[in-house]
């Protein structure tokens, strides 16, 4: 009789999900995938992607009201039951970022913020000096700060030292889809801080997300990779499975890399033919 593989696998999956929660800022999540809404082609695609991804934490932004989405985007997110993570995208200085975070706290009723302070419009790379300044101010004002940062272990440690709830290094520039350009630095950063490390920016496809988790990241935040995919819903599911697969592989412990082959089939008892 053929076995039902889904039923056979279910206990292992359930055990992993129940026993491996992701905790950040005092909140616990079963999903390790954070989803950004930027670039989403339609509200239908947004809802399908959020549901397929299994995410429990979704980033949003604030803009002048005439340029903002209608209330229906928020209706979709409310319906999906996700927690909101407002960002400070577009801010160039600590002053702008702190004010934007305060405005987001008023609008969204949360003191969680994805702190983003960029250095220029071409690279969208973080401005380390302004970022650290803003992080320190926001932490002192009681914000739960998840800081988008360079893939720099030393800066990551400074951000953790001033009280950030999570450090979120880029894999490569925002929206570039170039993946993780310096895996070694991501692994070093993971070792350098006690707070969660969330790979944020640069993910292009599922293998990038899996790699982030294999490097030891606690979660992955991505937007464009899903919202700009040809089929956002399907890519959202791919990312979910990649994050889960990468996490399991990290916990399971990969085999060491070897220069030469090592037979998995024993030579003992090999017949002479």
């Amino acid at each position: 009789m053929q076995k039902d593989l889904t039923t056979e696998l279910a206990p292992a999956l359930a055990r992993e999900e129940a026993g491996d929660p992701f905790t950040v800022g005092g909140e616990t999540f079963t999903s390790r995938l954070l989803l950004g809404t930027g670039g989403v082609p339609s509200l239908e695609a947004l809802e399908a992607s959020v549901r397929a991804s299994g995410t429990q934490l979704v980033t949003v932004a604030l803009r002048r009201v005439e340029a903002s989405a209608t209330g229906s985007m928020m209706a979709v997110l409310d319906r999906c039951g996700v927690r909101l993570l407002p960002n400070t995208a577009g801010c160039h200085t600590a002053r702008e970022a702190v004010l934007t975070a305060r405005l987001a706290r008023e609008a969204f009723g949360t003191d969680w913020v994805k702190l983003e302070v960029i250095g220029d419009e071409h690279t969208l790379l973080p401005d380390a000096v302004e970022l650290l300044d803003a992080a320190e101010q926001l932490v002192s004002e009681g914000f739960t700060v998840l800081a988008y940062t360079n893939d720099d272990p030393i800066l990551g440690r400074r951000l953790a030292d001033v009280g950030c709830a999570a450090v979120m290094p880029l894999g490569s520039p925002i929206g570039s889809g170039l993946g993780i350009r310096n895996p070694h630095n991501i692994a070093l950063l993971r070792e350098a801080v006690q707070v969660p490390v969330v790979l944020d920016a640069g993910i292009g496809t599922a293998s990038d997300a899996a790699q982030a988790m294999e490097l030891g990241c606690d979660a992955v935040l991505l937007a464009s990779a899903v919202t700009r995919a040809r089929d956002p819903e399907r890519m959202a599911l791919a990312m979910r499975q990649a994050v889960e697969g990468g996490r399991l592989a990290k916990l399971a412990g990969r085999i060491p890399r070897r220069w030469h082959a090592e037979a998995s089939t024993s030579f003992a008892g090999l017949p002479e033919l």
Binding site: V40, A61, G71, M73, N87
Partner: peptide
């Protein structure tokens, strides 16, 4: 005055 409302963002 700045009057701000939610929009999509990454």
């Amino acid at each position: 005055l700045e009057v701000l409302a939610p929009t999509a963002g990454g």
